[in-house]
Design a protein around this nucleic acid. Structure first.
Lengths: 188, 188, 188, 188
DNA sequence: CATGAATGAGCGTTCATTCAT
DNA sequence: GATGAATGAACGCTCATTCAT
């Protein structure tokens, strides 16, 4: 019965925030984000109560986007190594295709106001990857290592690989494979 | 332009900054750091021209402290695995012994104003570790992987391990060993 | 320009404003008043052009309510002291029975945007009291004092009495009588 | 050893606040007050932590100023009526001489953030008047009325008188005497 | 050189009012 | 007319940095 809250505008703000965070960091003014999104600065606060809330939701959105990309077309039946490799490749491909999202996510990961709840929800988006890794872990040399630690190792190796790929895009494919090999040796 | 009078005060400020960063993050006011250091807020700027300068120097100081700890008593002759293991152990021990320094360093690592020069200097403090790793690399499965990437993997696995240790100090030793084993499999 | 559709809604807004002013003061957001009234924030502005307009109308409404209560059943014939005492008693009774209205009115009285016109209209609602007082004045010690000042004294003594009653409701009746006695001595 | 906090600047801010409150009300921007005082807006906050703090201190300052003026040269020995009359005259004179202070004080009296402590301290500045009044009360028709109520009546009659004087300055003296007579009849 | 007051740009958020639905 | 999203000016307060003492 009135103008409905537009999902489009919400997305525009989130997208703008992604871009602005990349160029200006987490201390970027909300006014700048609003402007980049093409809305009035006050409007930002009809979609997100506070700056922290905006950043929490963006964190989740980006994490979900990443997980989504990584998990596309995962076929449960096949060889675990094959499956993990496919996830890995899609993950790395996402990182190269959406450098802004990746960078923004890296910054948000370190934002002081991301709540534990948000982080937990973020982890949940990657549950399918964790499941796959769990299968691998129980049959390999990390059989006795807690799952949480194995996941952390996966993440840290992925991050290092992404950084290396970004630093030298000409050899991105090579780095991706090397990173996966290292990962496989470490966890399988 | 010349070295400021009291090196003691400089240290006090750096120490205070470490503590304050841990509790308040990188956006902590310089006035707060000065107060924690027991000096006037204006004095901070006679020792460090800007906040960014302070944080750059602190970054270096902490990196050096960490490298120093890790490289203590390194004996060049012995088996590379032994050497790397010793470095690893001292590194992890430092992280557990100085949690503030570790946390502050982690934050500074993502501070937008750390200059490439500072980062380069930071890497240099770990040159001895890199040398050792280089030796290992050339004789193992990462023979064809660029050294920079291998170092990055070492760092990322170390970070993941430190976090896991901090999360569950009762099993810190176990995590440390598991982390080292994973590292060794990955890079050797 | 014409009277808006629902007088009921208008009342709801005025009532809500009364309540909200008591708890939040004159700086209470119009959105909060609208919500308390159960209407959309935009709707408030179809009934009252501006916040100031709303507050002016509320001021009048409350003043009229108060005067109305005070003047109920006034019998013109009887002894002026009796008449004034009845007015006084009903006035005090109203203040104790509708503390929200009283408090809101007290706040509105100092609201910067109450126009002279509104204030004049407010005075008119109390004209009957003024007439009665005029009768008393001309026969007593304030014979030579301008009527406006006498009315002001009545009001100020009433306000002080109401406050004292509110502060110690157990002795409200006593305060009321003491206040009236003081008033009578002052003006008769 | 550094620039000392200047009492002059503090006074300048309080004076500026007085003037600005009179013209713009309590919602006047702190920036405007600072500008009027000839200091940077940030400086205001080195002298007063918050706007509310500034207003509380101003309230006290003005109350004290008023009490001071009213109590000048009070001679304890003489006839209570004489004493009260002198206080009354000085009080009214102050109100006419410093209309800004009076108006600002009237507004502050109604400011939502004046703390009970500030109000209590304000009352204490008028303790000598209360003492004098107490003496009068115990010997007159308000013998059985609580002191607090008598003080409230004094204040309310004074306020009404001041307003009437301000409205018609040509007859200020007359109003002052009429007000005092009414007061004396009411409380003595 | 030490101190801490002075400065003023800048920020997150609010809110009266307007307007698309 | 009713709704509530959209708007953008405004505000209180912070804080890196400068400067008078």
């Amino acid at each position: 019965m009135s103008r409905p809250r537009s999902d489009e505008k919400r997305k525009a703000i989130l997208d703008a925030a992604t871009r602005v965070i990349v160029t200006q960091g987490l201390s970027a003014p909300t006014a700048g984000i609003a402007k980049e999104a093409g809305v009035a600065n006050g409007s930002l606060f009809t979609y997100f109560e506070t700056k922290a809330e905006l950043f929490n939701q963006l964190y989740l959105e980006l994490k979900a986007d990443m997980a989504n990309a990584a998990l596309t077309d995962l076929r449960p039946g096949v060889d675990p190594r094959q499956q993990l490799f496919q996830v890995w490749q899609r993950w790395m491909a996402w990182a190269m295709a959406c450098p802004d999202k990746r960078r923004a996510l890296a910054q948000l990961d370190v934002y002081g106001e991301i709540t534990p709840e948000t982080r937990a929800a973020g982890h949940r988006t990657m549950a399918a990857i964790a499941d796959l890794l769990e299968d691998i872990r129980t049959h390999g040399s990390m059989r006795k290592v807690p799952m949480g630690f194995v996941v952390a190792l996966l993440n840290s190796i992925a991050e290092a690989t992404i950084l290396a790929m970004a630093q030298d895009p000409a050899h991105a494919r090579k780095r991706s494979n090397e990173g996966f090999d290292a990962l496989w040796r470490a966890v399988a």
